[in-house]
Design a protein around this nucleic acid. Structure first.
Length: 422
DNA sequence: GCTAAATTCAGAC
DNA sequence: CTAACGGTCTGAATTTAGC
């Protein structure tokens, strides 16, 4: 097996820079929703020592002169789609792993892979303006690691191919890389591995596979195998349906009124239900939750699961369920910071057993209504039409803060003049 | 005391 | 002026429930 991992450098910042070239060479960060935490940093921002994930208000001290941007997911998602479609011209089998990463199957390719990877970099840069790095290895774990090397060591010029390197050279390289860089080794596992004297990738690779499995679980065992070139994870070319669909968001201010929580919860149901229908599933139960800031002294958090008599993908029925759950858990007097819902117990709509007592004419009317709703929103933008209970966007005084949101350059006609003016 | 289901944990991005 | 800390998803491990 030969696998390449292509990853966009500093993805969100790079997407912003395509449409704001004046940000090139300057320290830039992109913030999470509600302008809360730093979720992407340009190299210049990294050089200033701004850590990933730090709350923005805490970073301001060391962030003199840094440009903070609110996140613009409409833009990133669209850039991502373009990125993936370019990559599909380089291999018939690809796995979209995340918004900015993609595995490509290079098995059976006998030509110069490094040169081929350079062509990928060139084409992505030329066609959509994004800088990417490519890692190549005989397993997914190795491809990930190779990508890390390609990013960190500029002498590789953005491409690192482990499959063309001698074992001894690889081992020397691995002994210089921290074990925490391995895909799947997070904070906790790193601590555990450190405590038994495994600090480098080479030490993990050389460890006894059965022992690692016994000590740290099945994943560590697999990691050791994969580092040694024995694949445990296959390419997942068709993405399976999601097992749960969730929508939640922090409020831009404290929310006290139950009606506003209802507005938010039903908006979240609308968003999630649309996704549910898009993947052809129905939902058997709805979870609702609300919480104050967990950092507040007077914290409150509660959730509730509402089972549905019959599985459905009807937004209105799902909202009804969510609201009944919400009313059970709402306590007046708290400054709520966040509300969210999760659609669970999903199953395939086509395999749904028919309800003997259902009003079939009513059901088909409802399903046409949902279909129309989805079509309008697809064409005219998210939540242009929806149930009245979700409120209209102009009135949602609780919605998230986004002080520095750039225009949706690629997905909104109204942003076109701005894009052209650049 | 077993298996199955539910919940929590850890990780990724 | 102060207070301000993301969102979605997966799979494994662990706990609890039901027999």
């Amino acid at each position: 097996m030969k696998i390449a991992l292509v990853d966009v450098n500093n993805c969100f910042v790079s997407c912003e820079r395509v449409f704001a070239p004046n940000l090139e060479g300057r320290p830039v960060v992109v913030l999470s929703s509600n302008d809360g935490c730093v979720v992407a940093r340009s190299n210049e921002a990294k050089a200033l020592g701004i850590p990933m994930g730090i709350p923005w208000f805490k970073a301001k001290g060391i962030a003199q002169g840094v440009v903070p941007l609110s996140s613009n997911f409409a833009l990133y998602a669209d850039m991502s789609n373009r990125f993936m479609s370019i990559l599909s011209t380089f291999s018939p089998n690809i796995e979209t792993y995340s918004i900015d990463e993609c595995f490509l199957d290079f098995s059976g390719f006998s030509f110069d892979l490094s040169g081929y990877a350079q062509q990928i970099r060139k084409r992505v840069k030329q066609w959509i303006g994004l800088p990417v790095c490519v890692g190549i290895g005989s397993t997914k774990t190795l491809a990930k690691l190779a990508n890390h090397v390609a990013k960190k060591r500029s002498e590789w010029q953005g491409v690192c191919d482990f499959t063309s390197m001698e074992e001894a050279r690889l081992d020397r390289l691995f002994s210089e890389i921290d074990v925490g860089e391995v895909w799947g080794v997070g904070k906790k596992l790193k601590e555990g591995l450190d405590s038994i004297g495994i600090g480098s990738v080479f030490e993990l690779k050389s460890a006894d596979q059965a022992r690692m499995k016994a000590l740290f679980g099945i994943n560590l065992g697999r990691m050791v195998s994969e580092l040694n070139g024995n694949a445990c994870r296959d390419l997942e070319i068709v993405s399976p349906n999601q097992h749960g669909i969730m929508s939640s968001r922090s409020f831009g201010r404290g929310v006290f009124a139950c009606e506003e929580l209802e507005e938010a919860a039903s908006l979240h149901v609308s968003i999630a239900a649309q996704k549910l229908r898009a993947q052809g599933s129905v939902c058997g139960a709805v979870q609702v939750y609300i919480r104050t800031s967990p950092f507040s002294l007077d914290a409150y958090a509660m959730g509730s699961t509402v089972p549905l008599m019959d599985s459905t993908d009807d937004t209105l029925l799902l909202i009804k369920a969510a609201l009944s759950g919400l009313r059970r858990i709402y306590r007046p007097g708290y400054a709520y910071a966040k509300a969210g819902i999760v659609l669970i117990e999903l199953s395939d709509k086509r395999r749904q057993t028919a309800d003997l007592f259902a009003d079939r004419e009513e059901a088909s009317k409802r399903s046409r209504l949902m279909k129309t709703l989805d079509e309008i929103n697809l064409r005219h933008g998210r939540n242009k039409v929806g149930p009245g209970i979700s409120g209209i966007s102009a009135d949602r005084s609780w919605s998230t803060k986004k002080g520095n949101r750039t225009p949706a350059y690629t997905t909104d006609w109204k942003a076109l003049p701005v894009a052209l003016a650049l």
